[in-house]
């Protein structure tokens, strides 16, 4: 399939996915008992006050009407206004999203840079001690709740050994975040750990599969050495399926960011979402989930495009 028509189809699919996301989240928020009024107005609020709040926010209308209204707003780039922070949701998210992206992208890049060589090393040394050791460590990293890992990191590398601050960089601008790179170390490490675990496993499996492919035998028969075969052929062939998995891993990274931001007090989207959840601030909750899902969908799309660049077969629809 030609690239433009492929892109058009993928973008349409992405839009469909995002529409489904809005339905799911909108439905979920409004299906749960309670409603936001009690949370916003406090336990002392009278029935009259609650009714007025619901009327002002349009919450007394039928759900489909509310949904269509929201969708209409969305088409005009309006994510609504926060109940509690008295600011447009789009501005709140606009301030916070870049910081969360810094955290997740850094975790992802550093995680991949560690995971890929580790996975290949394991595959080459399959069933040797180093393979078992890395496998065990991967499983442990994968099995540790992020908040527990973050806590251990703080206790060890901030309290016992005073190497890094226990708080993430503060401040509103990205410049302020990058001015304190020391403070990013522990949050990024906490975010990257399970990434390393998962992707070193993927890379190990992909490399093992490729090592048994016929083309490796052909290269060997042509007089190429193992190391050269690994570098010239196996590496790229193994990387393609691993990149395809990246898009699907983004939600896990964002989920991790939610916890990491709370633990290290990093004022990103996760923290915004956290406080909005405590305050029943529906517009903010909806907006955050929507933006995160959109980021995931875009990430998946990007992973596909990268795969098309690396693997000429995908473009020709042969893979």
């Amino acid at each position: 399939m030609s690239t433009p028509s492929y892109l058009i189809r993928r973008v349409l699919q992405a839009v469909a996915v995002i529409v489904i996301v809005t339905i799911v989240v909108f439905g979920l928020l409004h299906a749960l008992p309670g409603g936001p009024a009690r949370g916003i107005l406090g336990p002392q609020a009278t029935a009259q006050q609650i009714a007025r709040f619901n009327h002002e926010q349009g919450l007394d209308q039928p759900l489909p009407v509310q949904y269509l209204h929201y969708l209409n707003q969305l088409l005009h780039g309006d994510l609504g206004t926060s109940y509690t922070l008295n600011a447009p949701v789009s501005r709140l998210i606009g301030e916070r999203l870049p910081k969360t992206l810094v955290l997740t992208v850094l975790s992802m890049v550093i995680g991949l840079l560690l995971a890929i060589p580790l996975g290949m090393w394991q595959a080459v040394r399959r069933n040797r001690p180093v393979d078992y050791v890395i496998t065990t460590l991967s499983f442990i990293a994968y099995s540790t709740p992020v908040y527990f890992l973050g806590l251990i990191l703080i206790l060890v590398f901030s309290q016992v050994l005073p190497w890094f601050p226990s708080q993430a960089p503060q401040g509103d601008s990205l410049a302020q975040v990058f001015s304190d790179p020391q403070a990013l170390v522990l949050p990024v490490a906490a975010g990257a750990a399970s990434m390393v675990a998962v992707f070193s496993r993927y890379m190990r499996a992909a490399t093992l599969e490729n090592l048994s492919e016929d083309y490796v035998r052909t290269a060997r028969a042509g007089g190429s050495r193992s190391r050269a075969i690994l570098r010239r052929h196996v590496f790229r062939n193994s990387l393609t399926p691993v990149i395809a998995m990246l898009g699907y891993y983004l939600p896990v990274l964002f989920g991790g960011a939610l916890v990491v931001e709370q633990l290290f007090n990093y004022p990103g989207m996760g923290l915004l979402f956290w406080s909005a959840a405590q305050a029943s601030d529906y517009p903010v909750l909806l907006g955050c989930v929507l933006v995160i899902s959109a980021a995931t969908v875009v990430g998946t799309l990007l992973a596909d495009v990268v795969q098309r660049i690396i693997d000429p077969r995908v473009k020709a629809g042969r893979a």
């Binding site: 016929d214 083309y215 035998r217 052909t218 028969a221 042509g222 007089g223 062939n237 690396i310």
Partner: peptide, 26 residues
């Protein structure tokens, strides 16, 4: 090292399955 010096120069091989014998990405 000894095999690599020989293979592709003194002796070489043609395989059964042309579909998979070549690196798909090179």
């Amino acid at each position: 090292a000894g095999l690599a010096a020989l293979r592709g120069r003194t002796v070489s091989m043609v395989f059964q399955e042309p579909a998979t014998a070549l690196d798909p990405l090179t």
